[in-house]
């Protein structure tokens, strides 16, 4: 019989923290080999804690963790990437917070998914000098894909026939695009323009660095992309993404009383 190791080393991205007990933090980490897990950082809220600045959300940190009966405890932590330029810019920060929430919501605890770890690490790096909507769309689509929800973009999800040219529709509940002749009853659909469809296919295939980042898209296409992916994510998660509201408040003016959220715009058939 083998006993599991009591102490393990891992690097991880801190997805979120939660004040816990007198001066502790309960951290949610995303690790390359064990997926999402939780661990306690004892005394981390004290000014002189040696863990303090190493375990803030968004950081990529190297950890030494002791396995516990209920909760694992962090012994040592040293930050690898602090993402200072993201933390010091409100627009980038709001996008990063949103990305952390998405990963937290989309991934099951303790299930390894290295592509998601890599995606998160690389997107955080790109975010340092690129806060475009396109980067976020790329992240959202890839995250959906790596979680097993990659939208179908070549065939009709209803009749399986190859999509022909023209304006199509996207059915988030069905997980993909519909051809011109299929009109399933009582299924919410979003219009899908040829441009958006092409961009989505491109995002599906190509890496962000060097390829996707060179695309220049019209505002209308970007907006369509944003709405489509947000709706798809909301459908998969079956709940509101809280960070999306803050991101809108930051991105679309600071007047929070009249900020329209994507959810308020109805999905029309």
């Amino acid at each position: 019989m083998t006993t599991p190791q009591k102490i393990y080393k891992t690097e991880a991205i801190v997805l979120k923290h939660f004040a816990f007990g007198e001066a502790d933090y309960l951290l949610t980490l995303y690790t390359p080999n064990a997926g999402r897990l939780k661990a306690v950082a004892k005394g981390a809220r004290r000014v002189k804690s040696k863990l303090g600045g190493h375990i803030e959300p968004l950081m990529r940190t190297s950890f030494l963790i002791t396995r516990g009966y209920n909760l694992d405890t962090i012994n040592q932590a040293e930050v690898l990437e602090g993402h200072r330029s993201v933390r010091e810019d409100l627009d980038r920060l709001s996008i990063a917070i949103y990305m952390m929430e998405l990963v937290d919501a989309m991934t099951p605890e303790g299930q390894s998914n290295y592509p998601i770890y890599r995606l998160l690490t690389e997107t955080m790096r790109s975010l340092a000098d690129d806060d475009s909507q396109l980067l976020l769309s790329y992240f959202q689509l890839r995250l959906l894909g790596y979680s097993g929800f990659m939208p179908e973009l070549y065939n009709c999800v209803e009749c399986a026939s190859l999509l022909e040219e023209g304006h199509h529709r996207f059915a988030p509940d069905q997980g993909g695009s519909l051809c011109n002749s299929c009109h399933p009853f009582n299924v919410p659909v979003i219009p899908l323009s040829v441009d958006t469809l092409k961009v989505l296919r491109f995002l599906q295939k190509e890496e962000y660095t060097g390829r996707v980042e060179r695309l220049h898209l019209e505002q209308g296409t970007l907006l369509e992309l944003e709405r489509l992916l947000e709706t798809m994510l909301r459908h998969v998660l079956d709940r509101e993404i809280k960070g999306s509201r803050f991101r809108n408040q930051v991105a679309h003016g600071m007047n929070w009383e009249s900020t329209p959220t994507l959810t308020e715009i109805d999905v029309k058939g």
């Binding site: 923290h17 803030e56 959300p57 968004l58 933390r87 010091e88 810019d89 409100l90 920060l93 709001s94 917070i97 803050f246 930051v250 600071m254």
Partner: peptide, 15 residues
């Protein structure tokens, strides 16, 4: 100087 505190400070600063 935490993530939440920083976002609040930046948000208030912008306003």
């Amino acid at each position: 100087p935490s993530l939440e505190g920083e976002s609040t400070a930046m948000y208030v600063h912008r306003l």
